[in-house]
């Protein structure tokens, strides 16, 4: 055996099949391609930038916990009702399988997490929906968790911040999902009548029964740049009216122009904006 081959230091990153040693090997997960501008970005850089593309400001999608981490003070989030799980109440085909798959994929039990946290030292209730769980669809458990979060905020006289992302009411629970629109709206109304602040943060995409209920009921409605916000999704509309839709139709910016969104906020300034709004409403003054 040749001595030099033997002592050649082994490079961890070296691809054993790749004999061309001049080509550096980088594992896939170190890079992510921006779906908007196509720039290759270092994953660590994206993370540091709250998952916003440094080149074109595209906001990558976040899951429910990433959203909470983004605005909650460190280690202050206390989750409520975390063991609630959906059941196949109306015996809908493939629903059990779909639930199992979603649980595995998202590592969550439902399409929403709720709890309390501190934001810049101010106590608040927080609700965060999850696009990784059945596209954030609203079933009975989703609706019930959100209702309970509002009821808790009303009892404790706390403000509430809700991050929405949803494909709408969950078809697999039939009419019972539709009823959650009324139920959550009732809970929002009670919180509102108690003189408490509700801020909605609409994220990509917020559609259907969620848009037509609590998403549009905030005292202040914020949205992430370019987020799709709709009652009927663009494809459904195109199929119905057989017409091409205007440019930027149903984006956050479009809704702001039409008067349905108060402010489009870059994710990197969101925590500051929320804190400021809480302070203006006299929270955190004790």
């Amino acid at each position: 055996m040749d001595l030099f081959t033997f002592i050649k230091p082994k490079n961890e990153l070296e691809n054993s099949d790749d004999t061309d040693t001049k080509k550096p090997y980088v594992p896939d997960e170190m890079w992510e391609k921006c779906p908007e501008c196509g720039t290759l970005l270092l994953t660590t850089d994206i993370e540091e930038n709250l998952r916003v593309c440094s080149k074109c400001n595209h906001h990558f999608r976040l899951n429910a916990r990433q959203r909470v981490d983004m605005i909650a003070d460190k280690d202050t989030f206390v989750e409520m009702d975390k063991d609630f799980e959906s059941a196949n109440i109306i015996d809908f085909p493939f629903y059990d399988e779909k639930l199992e798959k979603s649980k595995k994929q998202s590592n969550e039990k439902e399409s929403v997490i709720c709890g309390t946290c501190k934001l810049g030292g101010i106590e608040t209730v927080i609700v965060s929906m999850n696009s990784e769980f059945m596209m954030g669809s609203m079933g009975t458990v989703t609706g019930d968790k959100i209702t309970r979060a509002f009821e808790y905020a009303t009892e404790q006289r706390l403000p509430i911040i809700v991050f929405t992302v949803s494909g709408g009411a969950r078809m697999q629970e039939g009419i019972l999902s539709l009823m959650q629109m009324a139920k959550t709206s009732g809970a929002v109304k009670m919180h509102s009548d108690a003189g408490l602040l509700y801020i909605t943060v609409l994220t990509d995409p917020t559609t259907g029964g969620v848009t037509a209920s609590f998403a549009m009921e905030g005292d202040i409605i914020l949205a992430e740049p370019k987020a799709l916000i709709a009652f009927a999704g663009p494809r459904v509309i195109e199929q119905t009216i057989r017409q091409k839709l205007p440019k930027d139709f149903q984006t956050a910016e479009f809704l702001k122009q039409k008067g349905f969104v108060d402010k489009v906020v870059d994710r990197r300034y969101l925590k500051e904006t929320l804190k400021h709004l809480l302070k203006i409403h006299n929270y955190g003054e004790d």
């Binding site: 009324a182 929002v188 109304k189 037509a212 009921e217 709709a230 017409q243 139709f249 349905f260």
Partner: peptide, 17 residues
């Protein structure tokens, strides 16, 4: 288009509430 522009989601949400 008009229904979305004038806030279909918002109008339903407000009625529910």
């Amino acid at each position: 288009i008009g229904a979305e522009e004038r806030g279909q989601g918002h109008s339903i949400a407000t009625n529910l509430m």
